[in-house]
Design a protein around this nucleic acid. Structure first.
Lengths: 204, 204
DNA sequence: CACATAAGCGGACTTAACCCCGCTTACCGC
DNA sequence: GCGGTAAGCGGGGTTAAGTCCGCTTATGTG
């Protein structure tokens, strides 16, 4: 887990910095474990890690940035499966099947990390211009599929938010103001909905 | 503009409270005009209105709440057109046409109020369980249309976020981190994309 | 009109994200 | 090894969101 794919970044990041980043992520996860997202404050994170507050902000830019980093980290595994795992999630299956498989996987991923994903949204300062990996992958598959007459860029965005939105804001069930974690039944409905959408849009 | 549709609320709200609410909204709009969303702070809003900070929070609950209130206020006009305006936006046209018309109108609405809509999102404390009017309307139209084999509740959510997401987070153009307001060309693409989606999903 | 009361109000207080800037230290070429 | 230097670090300071609680006032009743 040390020197994996080292893509040509101009400045590779100093050794102590990398160590501290990892330490911070680990501490952050521990804090989440014991008190949920609300419990994770910058001061506490710094203190528990034995580092200064400035360091925390240097690494992650903002509170939302930490959650983003955590989510990216968790997402890496999924990415691996998509890039080089077995079909239909990985390469080898027809694009439409991969689309369905990816959506299903993403739904489960989001359901598992709902709290962190939500904390990523922060009206004040989102990292700006950050384009979700999800959308990029969807675009690749859609371009391969090339539905006649579609604007693939736009469609990829629509699909990405059709996948993420309902789960992040938890829109299902009675109109009441309760926000419960999604049940297995909810997830099944979302998955079926996704399958339906892909089939209708990308020919049957 | 005084006593319109007075639905049976248990407590109608005291007169001075209503006056202050309106005053606060007006002041908020003035602040937005002169400095954008970033300039609107609770302290400043209270001071400019000649009221205490407590009052501001009592009325709107949080900073995000103010933006929500502003957006709701702006949205009322659109709602009127949907409920009792001329077709195809208003009642009378076939559901598929109304779906397209509504999406188009919503896209334009969001493009015009993008900054405020964005400020509405706040990872910390969204008013919880708030279901966008948009989604409700979409569900009504979809139920009328009743696409075979679709889960209308799920589909309404997917559509709602397919409409809102790309515009709120501005996902289009080169991958760079610039967040510019959407151009007319962007809007045209989103509209075409929406039309495409509706046609594919709801039969041609 | 006087009173009761519940809603509304104000503004000091607390908390936490985020900024700043002088000090420290890992890394690179000799 | 040995500077030079740019990146990394620390933690106190600033700003703004959100809370609290005692005072004020609109409103309905006898």
């Amino acid at each position: 887990m040390s020197s994996e794919v080292t893509w040509g970044r101009p400045k590779p990041e100093r050794a102590d910095a990398a160590r501290n980043r990892q330490l911070l992520l680990d501490t952050a996860r521990a804090l989440l474990e014991e008190g949920g997202t609300g419990c994770l404050t910058m001061d506490l994170l710094a203190e528990r890690s034995g580092l200064g507050k400035g360091t925390v902000f240097r690494r992650f830019g903002s509170r939302a940035g930490i959650f983003q980093a955590l989510l990216d980290d968790s997402e890496r595994e999924l990415q691996q499966q998509v890039l080089s795992g077995p079909p239909p999630l990985g390469p080898g299956a027809p694009p439409a099947d991969r689309l369905v498989a990816y959506g299903t996987a993403r739904i489960r991923f989001l359901a598992r990390h709902q709290a962190v994903a939500r904390a990523t949204l922060d009206g004040r300062n989102t990292p700006a211009g950050r384009r979700p990996l999800s959308e990029i992958h969807l675009r690749v598959l859609l371009r391969e599929l090339d539905p006649p007459g579609a604007d693939v860029d736009v469609l990829a965005g629509q699909f990405a938010y059709a996948l993420d939105g309902p789960l992040l804001l938890q829109v299902l069930g009675t109109p009441g103001p309760e926000r419960r974690p999604p049940t297995d039944a909810d997830i099944a409905r979302f998955e079926a909905g996704w399958r339906y959408l892909v089939e209708r849009v990308c020919g049957a």
